[in-house]
Measured scan of single mutants.
Amino acid sequence: CHSECLGNCSQPDDPTKCVACRNFYLDGRCVETCPPPYYHFQDWRCVNFSFCQDLHHKCKNSRRQGCHQYVIHNNKCIPECPSGYTMNSSNLLCTPCLGPCPKVCHLLEGEKTIDSVTSAQELRGCTVINGSLIINIRGGNNLAAELEANLGLIEEISGYLKIRRSYALVSLSFFRKLRLIRGETLEIGNYSFYALDNQNLRQLWDWSKHNLTITQGKLFFHYNPKLCLSEIHKMEEVSGTKGRQERNDIALKTNGDQASCENELLKFSYIRTSFDKILLRWEPYWPPDFRDLLGFMLFYKEAPYQNVTEFDGQDACGSNSWTVVDIDPPLRSNDPKSQNHPGWLMRGLKPWTQYAIFVKTLVTFSDERRTYGAKSDIIYVQTDATNPSVPLDPISVSNSSSQIILKWKPPSDPNGNITHYLVFWERQAEDSELFELDYCLKGLKLPSRTWSPPFESEDSQKHNQSEYEDSAGECCSCPKTDSQILKELEESSFRKTFEDYLHNVVFVPRKT
């Protein structure tokens, strides 16, 4: 048989008469490798580009789960590009990614509803959504962080984005990388972005840091009482949809009607710091009717980097990364020049730590249904340095008659930039024990000054392991946590139920 035959053949030295091919099969003959313009397919066939392209389009058009959109890589027609490569849609070739590779997620039936953290986790790592997304989240724990972890990498949506009755959302900033909504599939009414009845939605994105392009379709905003109209108009300008909307697409009466839409800028007039305090004062603000001013709200939190936005980490279910302080308005003076500047002394802060701070007014709604208010920009203030805590785990070892090696770990709280350490030492008198000992005694162990690591005695271990207080009263049991108490109650309830079950099964009433 021919060298490319495997198993047997019907005619000697003829690659077209093989029972099976050793390498690849091409047009009725066995070959060692697939010549151009053919590609290896499933490690035994040679196919042309049209064959591989037909497989790709067949799966793409069917949208069946589990099928493969075949691509070409290293002269092979394979189910998908290997790690580190992405497909070129024009020629199906796998090309190296520039940075992290995109991950295209194809949605069944063309859309997916995100109504819980669990459903959001199914899209973790996706960068391109081939379909439409509907966000409908009523509640949950730590929602802002969970949504950002699972949806934060999405850069492109081919269909539309719909935010509907998501009472738990305060902001859409968890879509931190969303840059493009194509609108290839539109919501009824030709809408590519749809926001309806979101009672706590206050911000779409921080438009000073976020760009969003909507290729096709219109915007729809109705019944978002805490979303200011200025935020919607800003989205029109940034996304390129200005002029597409009709009169009733953006409701003037049901958007922002319960919001404090600040239209003035508060400026800080005085800032002073110490290692654990920050004193702030800002310019006074009074609405047209000074009785509408209820006070100020001061927001602050630790910020290692200057990239904080107002609604980071917030949701309507209680999660809030900001510390909020309510401040009463100052006494009002008739003389504008003698107006008191409101302020606040922030206490209990960490030394040498940068804080993000902003302040906003708290006002009631005027009778004319106009909203007044003022808010400052987010500023960054760093507390002063102070003395560091003591170095940890000092170790001293003498390696000769004239040297001592000293080692330690950095302090747990540096409280500033540590530039150097101060080492103090003092000579001590020799131990009298060394002169009084009889060095001729056998088995004498000389006193040693070398360091030995501390260890816990058996008594201390027994005390720590004991669940009861000892007789001397030195140790006591740790208080039980809520989960331990709940577990004990469940076990007790189970024992009672099981005992009742045994009584009912074992003891049967005697027939009379």
Rank of each mutant, 00 (worst) to 15 (best):
V104M: 06
L108N: 15
E109Q: 15
E109L: 12
T113G: 05
T113L: 06
I114S: 03
S116A: 05
A120F: 02
G125A: 08
C126L: 01
T127Y: 08
V128E: 04
G131K: 01
S132P: 01
N136R: 06
R138P: 05
G140L: 15
E146M: 12
L147H: 00
A149H: 08
L151F: 03
I154N: 00
I154Q: 01
E155F: 02
E155L: 10
G159K: 03
Y160A: 02
Y160D: 03
S166C: 14
L169F: 11
V170R: 08
V170M: 08
S171W: 09
S171P: 00
S173R: 10
R176K: 13
R179L: 08
L180T: 12
E184W: 10
E184S: 15
T185R: 13
I188L: 11
Y194T: 14
N198K: 03
Q199R: 06
Q199K: 14
D206M: 07
N211T: 11
I214F: 12
F220L: 08
H222L: 09
Y223R: 06
K226V: 06
C228G: 05
C228T: 03
E231Y: 01
M235L: 15
E236P: 07
T241R: 06
T241S: 06
T241G: 15
K242S: 11
K242H: 14
R244D: 10
E246G: 15
A251S: 07
L252P: 14
T254S: 13
N255K: 06
G256E: 06
G256A: 13
C261D: 05
C261N: 03
C261V: 04
N263V: 07
N263A: 05
T273F: 11
T273P: 07
F275S: 13
E283W: 07
P284L: 03
W286Y: 02
W286C: 07
G313N: 14
D315R: 15
S321A: 08
W322L: 03
V324R: 12
D326G: 14
I327Y: 06
I327P: 03
I327N: 02
P329F: 05
L331I: 09
S333Y: 05
N334F: 13
N334W: 12
D335S: 14
S338W: 13
G343E: 13
W344Q: 13
L345P: 10
L349W: 00
K350W: 07
K350Y: 12
K350R: 14
W352N: 03
Q354N: 07
Q354R: 14
F358I: 09
V359Y: 03
V363P: 02
F365A: 14
D367L: 04
E368M: 02
E368D: 09
R370T: 08
T371V: 07
G373N: 03
A374E: 02
A374S: 02
D384S: 06
S389L: 06
V397M: 12
S398N: 02
Q403Y: 15
K407H: 02
